[in-house]
C-alpha cells in the first residue's frame, strides 16, 4: 500500500501554544481518513499542515514520500473543501468549479466540459450559471466539493464537511461523500468533532486531544478497544469505570470500559451485580436503561421489546466474560 501522507514527529507551535505536538501518523492512499477530536485538539492545524497553509515548527510532512516543507500550497497535489466553503462570490458556479483549471491555463472549452462533468458528479448538473448566493447551504457544499475535485488531487482535505448542514442533509451527504470517494479512489482526509460521523464514514480514524494523536485505528477498533479513558469518553457513550469500581464488579483493578450494548438485564440476584433502575429512554429499535449499582451508574442498551422493571425496581446486570476492556489512565 502506498503512503499518501505521513507526519514524521511533526509539531506546530503558535507562540507558547502547542497546537500540534510531535505527531506521527501514516495515512494510506485510497483511504477515507478521519481526524476526530474536540475543538482545540489540533485536528484543523493538522489539515492545514497538509494543505501547506501552516508550516511545521519541527518535523516534517511527507506527501507521497516527498518532503513537503518547502512546497507552497499551490503546488501540492492536495485540494481542500473549506469549512465555510469559500466559494468566490463574484463568479458563477461554472467559473467557481473551473477556477483550478483556469489558473493552470486550460482553454475555455475544455474548462466548461470538465466543470459540467464535475457538477454532474455532485448532482448539480444545470446549476452552472447560478451565483453562489443563489444556492442553499447543501448546494454550496457540493459546488465546493466539485471545485476541489476538478484538479484531480491525489488527496482531498475536508474541514468539518458536514458541520453546517442539518441532520437529514448531513446523512445524505455522508452517503454521497463515501460514494464519490469510492468512485474516484483518491484519499479523503476529513476533520470532525462528531464521533458518529467519523465512525460511519471513515475507514481509519485518528483520535486527537491537546495536539497529540491518542489512538489510530479502524472505527471498530476505536469503538471496541479505546486505548485511553479520553477515547472511550469521546468516541462513544461507553461506561467508564475507575479501578476500584472494576474490582468491585469482579474484574481487573484498572480503568476499564464496558460497552452498553454488551450489558443485559436479569432478575435481581441472578447476575453479576445488583442495582436499581434510574431511567429508561427509548431510542426506537432499542432502549437505553441507566442502572445505579451502589453509587455508580451503568448504562445498558437492550432491545426495545425486552421487559424492564419500573423506575426504582431492582435488576441484576449480566455481561459476557471479557467484556471489560482495560485502558490507560489518561
Amino acid at each position: 500500500m502506498t503512503v499518501a501522507v505521513a507526519f514524521e514527529n511533526t509539531s506546530r507551535h503558535f507562540g507558547a501554544v502547542v497546537a500540534v505536538d510531535r505527531v506521527d501518523l501514516v495515512i494510506e492512499e485510497g483511504s477515507f481518513f478521519a481526524m476526530l477530536g474536540p475543538s482545540g485538539s489540533g485536528k484543523t492545524t493538522c489539515l492545514r499542515l497538509i494543505s501547506g497553509f501552516e508550516r511545521p515548527s519541527e518535523g516534517l510532512i511527507r506527501i507521497f514520500g516527498e518532503d513537503s516543507n518547502d512546497i507552497p500550497p499551490n503546488r501540492r497535489p492536495v485540494n481542500t473543501v473549506f469549512q465555510d466553503y469559500a466559494l468566490f462570490p463574484h463568479l458563477d458556479v461554472d467559473d467557481n468549479v473551473a477556477y483550478g483549471l483556469m489558473v493552470r491555463g486550460v482553454p475555455r472549452g475544455r474548462r466548461k466540459d470538465e466543470a459540467g462533468r464535475m457538477l454532474e458528479l455532485v448532482k448539480l448538473g444545470g446549476y452552472g450559471r447560478r451565483k453562489p448566493s443563489e444556492l442553499s447551504g447543501g448546494q454550496r457544499q457540493r459546488v465546493a466539493l466539485a471545485r476541489a475535485l476538478i484538479n484531480r488531487p491525489r488527496v482531498l482535505l475536508l474541514d468539518e464537511p458536514l458541520g453546517a448542514l442539518d441532520l437529514k442533509l448531513r446523512e445524505q451527504m455522508q452517503d454521497e461523500l463515501k460514494a464519490i470517494q469510492e468512485t474516484l479512489g483518491i484519499t479523503f482526509i476529513f476533520v470532525t468533532h462528531d464521533q458518529g460521523e467519523a465512525l460511519s464514514m471513515a475507514d481509519q480514524i485518528a483520535v486527537m486531544n491537546e495536539g497529540r494523536v491518542i489512538q489510530t485505528g479502524s472505527p471498530r477498533e476505536i469503538y471496541e478497544h479505546p486505548r485511553t479513558r479520553f477515547v472511550a469518553d469521546f468516541v462513544g457513550s461507553s461506561n467508564v469505570f475507575p479501578p476500584e469500581v472494576s474490582v468491585s464488579f469482579g474484574e481487573a483493578e484498572a480503568w476499564s470500559s464496558l460497552r452498553p450494548e454488551t450489558v443485559s438485564l436479569a432478575p435481581p440476584g441472578t447476575g453479576r451485580v445488583d442495582g436499581h433502575v434510574v431511567s429508561v429512554r427509548y431510542l426506537g429499535a432499542s432502549k437505553r436503561v441507566t442502572i445505579a449499582v451502589r453509587d455508580h451508574l451503568v448504562a445498558a442498551i437492550i432491545a426495545a421489546d425486552s421487559p424492564v422493571p419500573d423506575q426504582g425496581g431492582g435488576v441484576s446486570l449480566v455481561w459476557p466474560a471479557g467484556s471489560f476492556h482495560v485502558m490507560d489512565d489518561d
Binding site: 494543505s51 497553509f53 507552497p72 500550497p73 499551490n74 503546488r75 492536495v78 485540494n79 481542500t80 473549506f82 469549512q83 465555510d84 469559500a86 466559494l87 468566490f88 462570490p89 477556477y99 483550478g100 483556469m102 489558473v103 493552470r104 471545485r147 476541489a148 484538479n151
Partner: peptide, 21 residues
C-alpha cells in the same frame, strides 16, 4: 473572508493570479 484567498492558492493560483481574479 480569508479563506477565499486560501481557496485560490489551494486551487493552484499564484499570488498574482489570486490578486487579479
Amino acid at each position: 473572508s480569508g479563506s477565499l484567498i486560501e481557496a485560490s492558492f489551494d486551487l493552484g493560483a499564484t499570488g498574482f493570479q489570486t490578486f487579479r481574479y
